[in-house]
Write a protein that binds this DNA or RNA. Structure first.
Lengths: 129, 129
DNA sequence: ACTTGACTTGGAGTTCGCTCCAGAGAGTAC
DNA sequence: GTACTCTCTGGAGCGAACTCCAAGTCAAGT
């Protein structure tokens, strides 16, 4: 059940360095070690890794995720703060996503215009043949 | 019609340093200067600034935008390459956007669960009164 | 003529988020 | 026991994208 850093690295496609870095800065709670000091990831640890990978992938900052973990570790009485933090980040993510959708549309329009322009050019060339 | 860097900075909410930086690295074509060496932005220059701001805002890399500008400056025969570059970036942007939409959904679910948990807690507290 | 303020350039400095490395300590294989 | 492999820690290094700074130029106002 418990996994080594090599296995977790493989499983989530994050480098061992990144996993150690994430733990060092508190982006995931501290992982337990064997008596000889080697990390032994539980399924719970893996859930944190997966969560953080997902949130980082969407662009949430390390800073805010560290804060989330800190709140989590302080226990139940921080549930409200955690919820507020999540709402704030959700709103940020939403507006960034909306901006990206608009830009996506713009890129598609631009590509369409390129298609038309190049299409016209080809026609012209054919006519010249 | 022509604008100073201060006006362009104001108009697009980009610092003067950023505008100069963008020009220096070729993210926008070179802006003409007055005889005394001061930048004088035409409406055309402003369109580039706006385009770049939009694309950077969606996360396109500086590197790829510089390449786009270079191709543009080489003229009509690069239209096809420019189109391909745009398609590539469009596809990248699309998958990033999709990832963000999935994460957005996940965040919303998580917030919902927080709402329920906190709701239950409040009820319990009330019952204890 | 001189001060003020906006602008110039080239280059150094900063922040974020990793990524790499050196040196050391275990566990396994022979 | 010694070679090999995996892992550890603390710290240095790196690339991207700005951001700041020093020293100098120029135009306008008084």
């Amino acid at each position: 059940m418990a996994m080594t850093i090599a296995e977790v690295s493989e499983r989530f496609e994050l480098s061992q360095d990144t996993l150690r870095y994430y733990e060092r800065i508190g982006l995931i709670p501290r992982v337990n070690r064997t008596k000889s000091g080697i990390r032994s990831y539980t399924e719970e640890d893996c859930k944190w890794v997966e969560f953080v990978k997902c949130m980082r992938g969407a662009g949430l900052s390390i800073e805010v995720l560290v804060e989330y973990v800190e709140l989590f570790l302080r226990g139940d009485e921080t549930a409200e703060s955690r919820k507020e933090l999540l709402i704030e980040q959700r709103d940020l993510l939403q507006s960034r996503t909306e901006e990206m959708l608009r830009t996506l549309q713009r890129l598609n329009d631009k590509i369409d215009r390129y298609e038309q322009t190049i299409g016209r050019k080809e026609k012209t060339l054919k006519r010249l043949d």
